[in-house]
């Protein structure tokens, strides 16, 4: 892969040319002052031109930068998460790893938040799709596609890492389950709990969350069991009213908690739905003719030529209209004059 750099040659030639130009213009326009005046006017014009919205940046540029920035932040976080997951998988699951898990949860939450915020930026850019000239519209559309594509890649990577981690964790837990007696008397409702468990994970991919809930659920069940046992016991051994009330309070608190979680879940499902709708579309375009550079150029060219044709047509119509106008006006005047003639003659 050889190449040749001609920048230096070009620069030298450009400098020479500008020098020559100055010399030449010096000879022609006598005084320097005149030249200076001309220059400054010219510069002012340039400056004005720049200030004009003629060449101004579209408003969404900072959004693009923000999106790029957030995406660049996601990447190292993903790596970190990956390494954390790998580490915690290598270690046996004693409760000491709590710290790691908290960290992991925090990280994945952050990543999820970053992804949604990038998504919001894209939405912002999308709002300004119809603004500006043709070229700028195309630019905007392409920028949106670009962000979506990179976002898609990141999201998929994130989901994948979460999923594989979960799978490995689950399989390990299954293996270790036999060794713990506590799990032996999990009621048949256990299946349903697992269910909720995956539900939580699905939304807040932090795996630690999962285990926390799991513990909560366990406690919950334990209490339920206790309660059942309580009623089976003879009257004398039963708990006091107060204790029962306490139980109930605890239960309502848990129910409220769960309700909140569920509503959160529903909301994030909607978000996810939106995101994936967009992403699905992106993927579809890849590998088709829509993703060809030459095709898109051809398309714009045909559109340009069509536009020219339509303009010509419009011009024609307009001209026709003008003619019509003239005819009508003239006809009106003739009528008016005719009437005038008749009136004056009578």
């Amino acid at each position: 892969m050889s190449s040749r750099n001609l920048s230096e040659v070009f620069n030298i030639m450009r400098n020479n040319a500008s020098k020559n130009r100055n010399l030449y213009s010096d000879d022609r326009n006598g005084t320097d002052a005149e030249l200076l005046l001309k220059r400054s006017i010219h510069d002012a014009e340039e400056g004005l031109e720049l200030r004009d919205d003629y060449g101004a940046q579209p408003a969404w540029i900072d959004k693009l930068e923000e999106a790029q920035y957030t995406m660049s932040k996601i990447k190292p976080k993903l790596d970190e998460l990956g390494s954390l997951q790998a580490r915690s998988l290598l270690r046996p699951a004693f409760d000491e790893s709590q710290e790691d898990e908290v960290e992991m949860e925090k990280l994945s939450q952050e990543i999820a938040k970053l992804i949604t915020s990038t998504h919001r930026h894209v939405q912002c850019i999308r709002y300004s799709l119809g603004e500006g000239g043709k070229l700028q519209q195309r630019l905007t559309a392409n920028v949106v596609t670009y962000i979506m594509l990179s976002l898609q890649e990141l999201t998929l990577k994130f989901r994948y890492s979460q999923n594989s981690y979960l799978k490995q964790l689950n399989s390990r837990e299954e293996r270790s389950q036999k060794f713990f007696d506590d799990f032996a008397n999990v009621p048949p409702g256990g299946e349903r709990d697992n269910y909720v468990d995956s539900f939580d994970n699905f939304l807040q991919p932090a795996s630690t969350n999962r285990s926390n809930y799991f513990q909560d659920d366990d406690e919950d069940e334990a209490k339920q069991n206790e309660l059942d046992q309580h009623f089976q016991r003879p009257m004398a051994n039963r708990m006091t009213e107060q204790q029962l009330l306490l139980f109930e309070e605890e239960n309502t608190r848990l129910a409220l908690n769960r309700d909140e979680e569920v509503s959160k879940i529903v909301k994030s499902i909607y978000d996810l739905n939106d995101i994936f709708k967009d992403l699905g579309q992106m993927v579809q375009e890849q590998g088709t003719v829509l993703d060809r550079i030459d095709y898109s150029i051809e398309q714009t060219q045909t559109r340009v030529s069509e536009g020219v044709r339509q303009l010509q047509k419009a011009e024609m119509y307009q001209r026709k209209n003008r003619k019509m106008c003239a005819i009508l006006v003239l006809a009106g005047i003739t009528l008016f004059l005719l009437i005038l003639l008749i009136i004056t003659k009578l």
Binding site: G132, L135, V143, T145, D291, S296, V304
Partner: peptide, 24 residues
């Protein structure tokens, strides 16, 4: 593909030898 080029931050493609708009 165009999406590959978008990844490299090339967002617009124009032909030098045919009708071009004069947006700055």
């Amino acid at each position: 593909a165009q999406s590959d080029m978008l990844q490299r931050e090339v967002f617009l493609f124009e032909r030098i030898d045919s009708g071009r708009s004069n947006e700055r």
